[in-house]
Design a binder for these strands. Structure first.
Length: 890
DNA sequence: CCCATCCCCTAA
DNA sequence: TAAGTTAGGGGATGGG
């Protein structure tokens, strides 16, 4: 039979041999599990040549199995392998202490692959991985397996299986409600859990969701279940989870709140929460600033950190995430009400129950409607990491999973993760890591700009120049190997880094990248003719390839990476910088193009025919890392159509591409009819992108205040409106009027009449570190202190703090500092505090819009008319403005 | 006014 | 044993 691997861990047989336990799903969606015997933990020791036998003997006499093997060291081009020792242990748990002992033995240079989790070691060596399909000689299935009856197979009998689609999974989300303690935040030591809501996909016995109530209440509904008491509530929760047997267990902030809370309560009450697929409980692992939750055989998904890292939102409360991402409302019960509702029961309790139900439902909707698992599953399949590791971790785990496999195939060992001292050194070293080049923009308003960019620039650079851990030459170069190589066989990066050519030794990383890139191209092609469901699967797959492709460069310069190479990372970016500069030069040197009979000809090609064609002058006006923005200037009085622009863009891209090593490729991305460039990384464009047969247009803003979360919504919206009016319609005058009306509204602000505006005036900033470690005062930090003093609920480190700016004490001259005038919006409303409208006009609205209007010569006076700053001069300018014919008349 | 510093957030 | 990378703008503040 075949199944898809959802999770893995290990246990022992009667003789304390380790057994890998695999948990998975059949193509029909049945959950299955088995134990695999015959695989043992091991690691490598690099030993000085003349001490090899001695060390081996020492280890053998300590009762270990030792094998001499030939392996390459992790980093650097090497001609020959070295003799190393493969140390085979009995118990995965002893590897760590064994490593320390082996390190101490005289003659041992280094140890390798000592910290690969046993389950991962197994998956890597069997050439299988997370969400991989595997074939095992298993009998019919035990559904809902438990630890006693897991069938056992030998490791040799497992086979990777071919299967495209993913197995159907069961999803469950949950949310708990606790009883506050006389208005205080509930504490797990004393405050009971009173409600647990659960939502299911697919349904559980015909129910989409259920709420468990922690006391005996009358209820006639199937989807509300009364429990005897809190102990019974927890018991029912565990029992429903076992019965439904979900593959994925989700919640919102559940790793930091719900799981720790119910586990503490369960311990307190002596209730068992054995919800693991091997009969184990769920357990926590507290790491510095985060908690990992494990339920054996299932995947635990906390949506909060996922939503945080996947979407740019001003606030990450469930309420706001649901509103922004799902357009769904969250029902709310004031925490102060809860004690009353719980005590009284009846209609109030029913409202509380339905609010609780909604939270579980929203968490499940976030997980499913945003198709988050599709992406993680695709990443798991493509990288080989277990799904839980993908959900919990970052890019480094995936990169390491891929590299460990490839290194193994090529007889290269991989170092353990660096200890704190080594990574500290590397962080210091990393100041020498230079990044991409940003070309200075030609500032101001501009028309007719073609946007070209490099497809997967860094990955293609690594492929094109064979940049890899396995090809890099020691810079000191006393290193024996490089001396004997002919010049032509060495690639020298602009950074000075030297690498052997593919002819000498094709790198591992370029090979992995090529496979990922080819697979992505193939997948995207398949998407065109795929059905809706198939398309979603393929889209997740191509997305996974993109993420992985882009992870390798960052990993190589990451101080905590197993495989770290500053020379490699610097070589990649140095080629990138050289490339974009060269691209700019090539395009600028083309000078002008002609369109003759529907084809694009360059200056010289058009010689003699240019008279019949239309000429466009080219110049690169901006570029950042992997993109160039090319302005196309038609002859005076002539126009440029979208089709012309695309034709020219593609021709330039092709020309540049043809001069570059494979697979580097510059492609046509979009055309901007108009744009405003304010500074590096700050611009707004009215772009047209090819879509199907035609074009799709939109305003694309980068870096400006509309896309920044530390400005208020009023600023974002006002600026956005101005940009649309100016870029799409050329209506500077209307934009000016709009700003004036916004300023007018601010100046006549009356919070009691217009409380809605408070939301629009709220700024948010992230509380990034504990209050004490700030060197300077910050508005949001000052506010946190104020709230703390008032005894309110303070945001935690990592949260975004919303605040408005109030007028404060002191006159015009010695006003309270800005940083001390941040206030909680709710508190402002409650206390009817006056907002600092001058701040909002002068610091929030004016500077961003003035940066835009500067291109048109619109001054501050024009925007502030009617505020006593009106003068004859600006009035005159306004009269003139009404005769505006073109944007450039300004 | 200029400049340096801290801080935040974004582009790529 | 938490975590891909650097480049860059711009606000608030304080010192010259």
């Amino acid at each position: 039979m075949i199944f898809q691997i959802l999770d893995a861990n290990y246990s022992y047989d009667a003789r304390r041999n380790p057994l890998v336990q695999l948990f998975g799903t059949t193509p029909e969606g049945k959950s299955v599990a088995c134990r695999v015997a015959g695989f043992r933990p091991y690691f490598y020791a690099g030993v000085e040549e003349d001490k090899l036998d001695e060390v081996a003997e020492a280890l053998r006499s300590a009762g270990l199995e030792v094998e001499a093997v030939d392996r390459f060291d992790p980093i650097g081009y090497q001609i020959k392998t070295k003799r190393m020792l493969k140390v085979i242990a009995h118990d995965p748990k002893e590897v760590r202490s064994l490593r320390e002992r082996v390190r101490e033995i005289p003659g041992v240079r280094a140890v390798y692959e000592t910290d690969i989790l046993f389950k991962n070691r197994f998956l890597i060596d069997q050439n299988i991985g997370g969400m991989a399909w595997v074939e095992a000689p298993l009998p019919e299935w035990v559904s809902k397996p438990s630890c006693q009856d897991l069938p056992e197979v030998r490791v040799e009998t497992l086979r990777p299986a071919e299967q495209g689609a993913n197995a159907p999974l069961r999803f469950m989300s949950f949310d708990i409600e606790c009883l506050p303690d006389h208005g205080e935040m509930p504490k797990a030591e004393t405050s009971p859990v009173i409600l647990i809501s659960m939502a299911f996909e697919p349904e559980y016995h015909g129910q989409r969701d259920i709420v468990l109530v922690g006391k005996g209440v009358e209820c006639s509904r199937d989807d509300v279940r009364a429990c005897l008491d809190e102990h019974d509530l927890l018991h029912q929760f565990a029992s429903i989870m076992r019965d439904y047997d979900p593959d994925i267990v989700a919640g919102y902030n559940s790793n930091e709140f719900d799981f720790p809370y119910i586990l503490e309560r369960a311990k307190h009450l002596g209730a068992d929460l054995r919800v693991g697929r091997d009969g184990s409980s769920c357990y926590l692992r507290k790491i510095v600033n985060k908690t990992d939750v494990t339920i054996t055989g299932r995947v635990v998904v906390d949506l909060l950190p996922i939503i945080r890292s996947s979407f740019s939102l001003k606030r990450y409360t469930l309420r706001n995430a649901a509103a922004e991402l799902l357009k769904m409302e969250k029902h709310d019960v004031d925490p102060k009400e809860i004690e009353g509702l719980w005590a009284e029961g009846g209609a109030g309790l029913r409202r509380f129950i339905s609010y609780s139900r909604r939270d579980a439902v929203l968490a499940l909707r976030l997980l499913l409607d945003l198709r988050l698992m599709d992406k993680y599953i695709a990443l798991s399949r493509a990288s080989g990491s277990l799904l839980q590791e993908i959900v919990n971790g970052g890019q480094s785990g995936m990169v390491e999973s891929l590299l460990l496999r490839r290194f193994r195939e090529r007889n290269r060992v991989v170092p353990p993760k660096p200890d704190a001292g080594v990574s500290e050194e590397r962080y210091e070293e990393n100041v020498d890591l230079k990044g991409g080049a940003v070309l200075s923009p030609q500032k101001g308003l501009m028309e007719d700009v073609v946007i070209l960019d490099y497809k997967s620039l860094y990955p293609t650079i690594m492929m094109a120049h064979n940049l890899c851990y396995t090809t890099v030459l020691n810079s000191s170069s006393q290193g024996s190997s490089s001396q004997q190589l002919p010049q032509g066989d060495i690639v020298v990066a602009p950074s000075g880094g030297r690498f052997v050519s593919p002819k000498i030794s094709p790198g591992i990383m370029p090979a992995v990248l090529k496979e990922l890139l080819d697979e992505r191209t193939k997948t995207k092609k398949l998407m065109r003719s795929a059905s809706e469901e198939e398309r979603r699967f393929l889209d997740a797959k191509q997305y996974a390839m993109k993420i992985l492709l882009n992870s390798f460069y960052g990993y190589s310069g990451y101080a905590r990476a197993r495989l770290y190479s500053l020379a490699l990372a610097n070589a990649v970016t140095s080629f990138g910088r050289e490339n974009i500069q060269r691209t700019k030069n090539v395009i600028d040197e083309i000078g002008s193009v002609y369109i003759v009979d529907g084809t694009v000809l360059f200056g010289e090609e058009a010689f003699g025919r240019s008279a019949q064609g239309r000429r466009f002058d080219l110049s690169v006006v901006y570029g950042d890392t992997d993109s160039v923005f090319v302005r196309l200037r038609p002859e005076p009085g002539k126009e440029l159509s979208l089709e012309d622009a695309e034709l020219i863009g593609r021709k330039i891209a092709e020309t540049v591409t043809s001069s570059l090593p494979e697979p580097m490729e510059l492609v046509f991305e979009a055309f901007a009819r108009r744009g405003i460039f304010l500074a590096k990384k700050r611009y707004a464009l009215w772009v047209f992108e090819p879509a199907g047969d035609g074009w799709k247009d939109r305003i694309k803003v980068r870096g400006m205040e509309t896309v920044r979360r530390d400005w208020c919504d009023l600023t974002s919206r006002t600026l956005k409106t101005c940009l649309e009016l100016v870029l799409k319609e050329g209506k500077v005058e209307e934009a000016v009027d709009h700003v004036r009306s916004v300023i007018g509204r601010l100046q006549n602000l009356d919070l009691s009449e217009d409380p809605e505006i408070l939301e629009d005036l709220t700024l948010t900033r992230r509380y990034t570190k504990s209050t004490g470690s700030y060197k300077n005062k910050q508005p949001h930090i000052q506010l946190v202190e104020k709230i703390k003093k008032r005894g309110g609920v303070v945001p935690g480190v990592g949260d975004r703090v919303p605040f408005v700016i109030v007028r404060g004490r002191g006159g015009r001259k010695n006003k309270e500092l800005f940083v001390d005038r941040a206030e909680d919006p709710g508190y402002v409303l409650e206390k009817n505090m006056p907002l600092d409208t001058e701040y909002y006009v002068e610091k929030q609205i004016l500077p961003p819009v003035l940066r835009i209007f500067e291109s048109f010569g619109v001054t501050k006076d024009r925007l502030c008319l009617g505020r006593g700053q009106c003068n004859l001069l600006s009035f005159g300018a306004e009269q003139k403005a009404q005769k505006q014919k073109s944007l450039f008349d300004y």
